[in-house]
């Protein structure tokens, strides 16, 4: 049933998030074109036209960049809105009468949010790259940016050649940190929405926001306590030979957030599943 749930969830999310991603790319293309035109006209036109073009372009660019970078926030908002709508509004009457397990519903939301966030993130990255490469020069391609990117890739290649296994492990760890922190964050959002919707009779969204701060505060407190007790012990442990510049040390320290985020993810998931299974009271 998970596959079927994912099919319908992705279909619904695609109606808003696909245009959002494509919109970001179009904005990047459009602003690159305007910028290119501006650079060209600055050489050709008289002073007044040149100044006018310059001002218009700056305003346009500010809005374009705001649009591109706010796309990530809009995506998160749309994903969470979908969670709330399909669980705690009239649509919940269908969602919770489907013959599926509660954990399948939660997994569906998590997997689809992961996929669509990735899609929007890639669109934003491509948009920024497009602008940096094509929108910042009169020529076809900004050679400096291209060289910078080439250098970055070369350095990364060198890093992998020198540190081999550790570098691969480090890259894997960064990926794990990304995935676990994403899962933790989304499950925290979703748990807050569930708590807010179950606890409050009215103003459920407001209650959900309040619950998010409560859950977040609780996590921050736990994190602080853990840091106080574990970090000095790790730093002062002579056998660990703490060397912050060494990739081995970084690799070792990255395991901690992965474990912590994974624990939070499991705890949020279990609480959310318990609430949806045993405390559901749709209005």
């Amino acid at each position: 049933m998970l596959g079927k749930l994912l099919k319908y969830e992705n279909k619904t999310l695609s109606k808003t998030l696909f245009p959002l991603g494509i919109g970001v790319l179009l904005i990047a293309l459009f602003s690159s074109l305007i910028m290119k035109l501006n650079l060209y006209l600055q050489d050709q036109a008289n002073e007044f036209v040149s100044k006018l073009m310059g001002t218009t372009t700056v305003v346009l660019l500010v809005f374009s960049f705001l649009a591109i970078f706010s796309a990530a926030f809009i995506a998160v908002f749309l994903i969470l809105q979908r969670y709330y709508k399909s669980f705690f509004t009239d649509e919940g009457y269908l969602t919770f009468t489907l013959p599926v397990k509660t954990h399948e519903l939660i997994f569906t939301k998590l997997i689809s949010s992961l996929l669509w966030s990735l899609f929007v993130t890639i669109c934003v990255m491509i948009a920024v790259a497009l602008f940096a490469l094509f929108g910042t020069t009169q020529a076809l391609l900004n050679q400096e940016v291209a060289n910078g990117a080439r250098l970055l890739l070369k350095e990364l290649g060198n890093f992998f050649t020198v540190y081999k296994g550790t570098a691969v492990f480090l890259a894997f760890e960064f990926l794990l940190v990304g995935i676990t922190s994403f899962c933790m964050q989304f499950l925290m959002f979703e748990l807050a929405i569930t708590l807010g919707s179950i606890v409050a009779k009215k103003h459920k969204i407001l209650a959900s926001i309040g619950m998010y701060f409560v859950v977040n505060f609780a996590c921050q407190s736990i994190n602080s306590i853990l840091t106080i007790f574990t970090l000095p012990a790790l730093l002062l442990n002579e056998s660990m030979q703490f060397q912050p510049d060494e990739p081995q040390t970084v690799a070792l320290f990255l395991i901690l957030p992965v474990i912590l985020y994974a624990i939070y993810t499991v705890v949020f998931f279990l609480i959310n599943r318990y609430l949806l299974k045993n405390k559901l009271n749709l209005d």
Binding site: M1, K4, K7, Y8, T12, K15, S86, D90, E91, G92, Y93, L94, T97, L98, P99, V100
Partner: peptide
């Protein structure tokens, strides 16, 4: 259980044919 609530519980953005697909898939 086949339950008909006292409200509209279908996703508004769906076509009627898609609601048939959904029921066919799950039930």
């Amino acid at each position: 259980v086949s339950y008909l609530p006292d409200r509209n519980y279908l996703n508004n953005s769906m076509k009627v044919s898609e609601t048939l697909d959904l029921f066919e898939d799950f039930y």
